[in-house]
Each structure stands twice: as structure tokens, then as C-alpha cells.
Design a binder for these strands. Structure first.
Lengths: 252, 252
DNA sequence: GCTCCCGCCTTCCGTTACGGGAGGGTCAAG
DNA sequence: CTTGACCCTCCCGTAACGGAAGGCGGGAGC
């Protein structure tokens, strides 16, 4: 089971140049050479290359990878366990970033302004006291901002007005259902939750049931989104959120 | 709302040098300068920096990011939508990698050998016909490999034998339950599934219910894992898998 | 046996995205 | 009016390769 550079490169999805480089720096030296000086890789080399590729994907510099792999106290299974942990951690971080993006999209849709630190905190290591005084003026400048956001959204004026009308119509009908005393998991409320989801999808971004329930949680967790609904009618934020959840469950 | 380089750097979690660099290449030039030549960033610059950070996290080179951001046909919401898509795609890829790692861990635990392409295909773009002849000799060399894998696992000989004994004992008791005619979702079968999970956790790696059901699916989907169980008793793979699923659901 | 082409070799220079100073001005606080 | 924390502009260094040049090796076909 001996392979040439080209074979290894194609199989592992790297370039020959990369393998040369790894050989140069001693990260992955082929187990032997042919009489003509050709590099010959064996299965153990492939094992090592697999580990290298995973650590690289996780952002480790090559010299650290070399240190990790050549650490005699770590057996192969330890590497797999470690990579499993690192990968799941990384997925968690990306999911936080997705949540942050969803929040940003919804904030934009509702003309709610986010603070600088909210937009960057998902990247970690930020300085919380840099913008302390900025927090107070979060609640202002509504009309000018609304108008500017209309333009940047890329819609024509009529489009924007139609969207606004649809949204307000939805709000009215939702308040009616609420006022009727129907529970949040009633068919009427759920139907309006579904309509809300499709309204978002039609006008702004693809809102899956999963994304939708994420928004619902945000409506009750974040004061600004809560305030948006509460000013329409007290208790609306929680009611909307529950209806969205009920709708999502029923469609699953 | 004007910020200095240092403030922006701390808030966004980048270095001052990075901002200098972005200014140099024209990716992010501050909207103004003070009389003394100090860079002055405003909120729009922070918006742009946020987008830059996300695209960077997704692996885009800086010149491409500049091209994307300066594309006049794309409004801010389009960027958010795009980043949402890219992020979820990336999460999906990482989840595949996690599954591959779990497969590798379980293969190691069961002394099953994987082919080179299986270990690399998660990275994409590999050449499937490179190792065609290698597939035939997948089923061999059991004892020597077993012995070597014992050593590399970092256990003492006694540990290894105890683990082996536990595993075989579990297998025997599982076959008993199967033979008794009890369904796979019976309490007895589920209890043994749980024991299986804890056995893995105790000896090899942290096996959550989620990971465990993943393994269960693999036992029936992959011929080598299926064969491992079928050689103990026909129908065992599916039965084990069902018991694991039932156990996981009941614990949720 | 010869040719041809593909794959391999080494060497070397280029690139990206910054890191990290050196040398020197700036600004608010004490 | 000094001091320390910031800011500026060069400028050189580094990591992880990319890519091409210039030259062997090897097996398939004539």
C-alpha cells in the first residue's frame, strides 16, 4: 500500500505543492522514497494526513499541529475525541452567528437599530465598556431611518407601501383574534402565525419553521422586539410567540 | 458617533493593524480623518466591518469581499441573506465532518478498517478511482490489527481484557433478550441499549444520546458494522439500532 | 530500441493577510 | 507642563502555500 504524491494529493483533496510543503517543514514526511527519489506514502501517512486536514480545517497553524501529533501522550483515539469536541464547539459558534444574522435581518425588517457590540459580540473578545453612552440613544430617529431603510432595501416605493400595508393588515387581524379570546394555539392564531412566516419569506428572506421559532423566542427575549409588539397591544409579543411555536409544531 | 481605530478594533475584536491594512487596500477606509490625521470611523463603517468579519469567517479573501461589498446590485439585506445561507451550509459541512469522526471512532472501537477515501471524502473533491483495487482487501488481518490497536489505545492489558469481557457480556445478554422474543422497544432491550451507551462512554468517548442514535443508524447503513452484529446473531444490527432509538426517545 | 508524454524532482520567487516593531506626533489628565 | 496612553507612517517579517522553471524517470506504443 504505497502511494505517490499525486495519488495522495487527489485522494486527500490537497495539492502536490502542499504535500511538498508538509514534507519540507517535517509535518508529513513520506515513510520512504523510491530509488529515483519519488516520495512514497503509506497508510500510516494517510492516517496522519487525515488528522492534519481536520486540525487545519479547525484553524490550527501547522507547527501546532506538528506539536499535537507528535505528542507521545496522545493516542489516535484521543485525537478523534479532541477533534470531535472542537468540531461541535465550532458548530455551536457558527449557530450563534446564524442567530445573530437572523436577529440582524429581523431588526432590519422591523426598523429596529442594533448596537455595535451586539453585532460583534458573536466574534468574542470585545470590550463592553467602549460604548456605554451609546446605549441611551437607541430609541430615536425613527422616521428618517425608516425612509432610508426603505431605499436601501431595493424596493420601489409602491412595493414598500404594499408590504407595509400587508404587514399592518396582518397586525390588525392578529389583534382581532387575540381580542376574541381565542388561545394562542387555536387554529385562527396558528393560521395567522403561518401567514406571518410566509409574509417574511415573500418580502425579505426565506423563513423556515426553525428560523420562525427562533424569531418567536427573540420577540419575548429582546426588549426592543417585545416593545414593537407591546405598543400594538399589551401581551401581544408572548401571544405571537406562542402562536408561532404552536404552528411550527403542528407542521412538523 | 465617531470612533477611533482603537475603539473600533476593541469593539469588533480585530487589531489596529488589521484596520490599517483594510484602509491601505481600500477595503474599509474610515469615513474621515481628524485634523491631526486620526482615522474617524462612523456607524456605516461599523456596518461594513461587520459584513467583512462575517465574510472573512466564511473564508473569503479580502479582494473578493471588496468586490462583493462594492457590488451596487446587492443591498444590505441581500448580504445578510447570503451570509445566512453560507453559514448554514458551512454548519452542514461541519456536521458531516462530525459524523465522519464518529464513524472513525466507532470503527476504531470495533476494530473495523476504513478506506482512505472514506476518511477524506468529507473534505470534498476527491478522486474515487484512485484506490479501486484497495477495496478488496478491506476484510483481513484481524488479530495483528486487534493487538496493535489495543496498544495504541493507551490501555493496559488488563484494562483491555476487562473492556473486552464487558463488551462480550453485553453482547450475550443482548442476544438473550432478543431470543426471548421481547420487542426492541421493550424495557429490557432499552436498558441494554443504555448500558451499551454507557459502556462506550466509560471506555472510549463521550457518547450522548444524539451520538448514540447516529451510531445506531450507521450499524444498519454500513455493511461492515452490520456484519459485526450479524455474525453474532442474524437480525441483531436492526434490533440493536431500534433499541437504541427507543431508549434515546424515552430519555428525551 | 526509441520516442513521447505524463508525473515526479528541486529551486526559487510571488502572494495574502496581516504581526510587530521603530521613530515620532497628539491629547487629556494630573 | 509633563506623562502615559493613544495615534500616525514607514518598513521588515512570517505562514502557508501557488505557480512556474528546468530537469529526470518510466511505461506505453511504434
Amino acid at each position: 500500500m504505497a502511494y505517490t504524491v499525486g495519488q495522495v494529493a487527489r485522494a486527500a483533496g490537497v495539492t502536490v505543492r502542499t504535500l511538498h510543503h508538509y514534507d519540507e517543514i517535517g509535518l508529513l514526511s513520506p515513510s520512504g522514497r523510491s530509488s529515483a527519489g519519488y516520495r512514497r506514502y503509506d497508510d500510516a501517512d494517510l492516517d496522519r494526513l487525515q488528522l492534519i486536514r481536520y486540525y487545519r480545517e479547525l484553524g490550527f497553524p501547522l507547527d501546532e499541529i506538528a506539536a499535537i501529533l507528535d505528542d507521545p501522550t496522545a493516542d489516535p483515539s484521543a485525537h478523534l475525541r479532541r477533534q470531535h469536541e472542537l468540531l461541535t464547539g465550532r458548530i455551536g459558534k457558527l449557530q450563534e452567528m446564524v442567530a445573530a444574522i437572523e436577529m440582524a435581518m429581523e431588526a432590519r425588517r422591523m426598523n429596529i437599530k442594533l448596537t455595535p457590540q451586539e453585532r460583534f459580540e458573536v466574534f468574542g473578545d470585545f470590550d463592553p465598556d467602549t460604548y456605554e453612552d451609546e446605549a441611551r440613544e437607541r430609541w430615536g430617529e425613527s422616521d428618517a431611518y425608516r425612509e432610508s431603510s426603505r431605499r436601501t432595501a431595493g424596493y420601489s416605493k409602491e412595493d414598500w407601501l404594499r408590504n407595509k400595508a400587508e404587514n399592518e393588515d396582518w397586525g390588525r387581524r392578529f389583534v382581532e383574534v387575540m381580542a376574541s379570546g381565542a388561545p394562542a394555539d387555536s387554529p385562527a392564531a396558528m393560521a395567522l402565525a403561518e401567514e406571518h412566516r410566509q409574509l417574511i419569506t415573500r418580502w425579505f428572506y426565506d423563513c423556515s419553521y426553525e428560523v420562525h421559532t427562533g424569531l418567536a423566542d427573540m420577540y419575548v427575549a429582546d426588549e426592543r422586539f417585545t416593545a414593537y409588539f407591546e405598543q400594538i397591544r399589551p401581551g401581544m409579543a408572548a401571544y405571537v410567540a406562542e402562536a408561532i411555536h404552536a404552528n411550527a409544531i403542528s407542521r412538523a
